[in-house]
Amino acid sequence: MPTLDDKNAIAFEFARICSLAAVKVMEIYESDFEARGKDDKSPVTDADELAEKIILTELAHLLPEIPVLAEESFAAGFRPKTDGAFILVDPVDGTKEFINKNGEFTVNIALIEGRVPTAGCVFAPARERIFVGGTQAWAGTLKAGQSVSADALALISTRARPASGMTAVMSRSHADETTLAFADAQGVTERVSAGSSLKFCLIAEGTADVYPRFGPTMEWDTGAGHAVLNAAGGAVLTPDGVPFVYAKEDAGYLNGAFVAWGRTE
């Protein structure tokens, strides 16, 4: 069993679990599934619920002492302690993308310590693309169910800001006028749309420079992508430049506005 001190080992264990859970996710994705509405009106499918069960079972064996805050169990009323280290799980981030079958959904797991993501994995099984972040960040090709190792992936890092202007990545489902205005004020010259936590990963691998988000998200939506971006040399800040933190229990784990950056020079 890896210790919490070995962030890379933790991150690759998360990657193993994401790959395992993605087998069930892809089985449902390729079927004639039905979406349902949760109490908060957000959509959910069998993939969310079954993948989360797999992930929670694996995490209970991997890190039995660490509480897990997971989207579907939270919706069902489970409230773990998050005043120390804890794990964030989003079994299918980008459920709208899943329902629309555009492939831009991800399986996410992140470790939070001191209110900051320190290890995480983002896996896009329909795109066969995985991102892993500990003290360094990796990315590569992976099919659901395959084993994953650092040797099979490539190290990634954020890029220096292009002299010709930054590329902003924005939510495919939630871009608004405030987001567009922020991008214009930063001198963004190109905009790219993407779903789910892949937006963080595009910055981490150096194909985009900034991801502004002023609409609501939950902590499990952002933790894994944030971990990968941190490991690749980026940062997530509030629009005022303050570090973006987790364990916001009093807010129901609802995130405020944030900006994900590549190089912050």
Rank of each mutant, 00 (worst) to 15 (best):
Ala22Arg: 01
Thr3Val: 04
Ser197Glu: 07
Gly241Gln: 03
Leu202Met: 15
Asp250Tyr: 04
Arg172Asn: 08
Ile99Phe: 10
Thr189His: 10
Asp184Ser: 15
Phe131Tyr: 14
Tyr246Ser: 09
Ser73His: 10
Val89Gly: 09
Gly187Ala: 02
Met166Tyr: 06
Ile130Asn: 11
Ser147Thr: 14
Ala47Ser: 10
Met170Phe: 01
Leu59Pro: 01
Ser31His: 01
Gly134Asp: 00
Gly134Ser: 09
Ala227Lys: 01
His226Lys: 13
Phe105Tyr: 15
Ala227Val: 04
Ala224Gly: 07
Thr106Asp: 05
Asn230His: 14
Ala70Glu: 05
Ala183Cys: 14
Ala75Phe: 03
Arg115Glu: 13
Ala235Gln: 11
Ala126Arg: 13
Asn102Ser: 12
Arg115Thr: 11
Thr95Arg: 14
Trp220Tyr: 15
Ser196Gly: 10
Lys53Tyr: 00
His226Phe: 09
Glu34Val: 05
Glu58Leu: 01
Ala160Lys: 15
Ser19Pro: 13
Ile130Thr: 08
Ile17Leu: 06
Ile66Lys: 05
Lys53Pro: 00
Leu229Cys: 09
Gly262Pro: 06
Val192Thr: 08
Asp39His: 10
Glu58Asn: 05
Gln186Met: 15
Pro243Val: 09
Asp39Val: 11
Gly103Trp: 06
Pro80Ala: 06
Leu20Lys: 15
Tyr211His: 02
Ala224Lys: 10
Ala251Val: 02
Thr118Trp: 03
Leu4Glu: 02
Gly252Met: 11
Pro239Phe: 04
Thr158Ser: 09
Val242Glu: 15
Asn108His: 10
Val23Arg: 12
Ala181Glu: 07
Ile28Arg: 13
Thr57Asp: 13
Phe244Lys: 06
Met26Ser: 07
Gly134Trp: 04
Thr222Ala: 08
Ala185Trp: 03
Glu265Met: 03
Ala119Leu: 08
Arg16Met: 03
Glu27Thr: 12
Leu63Met: 12
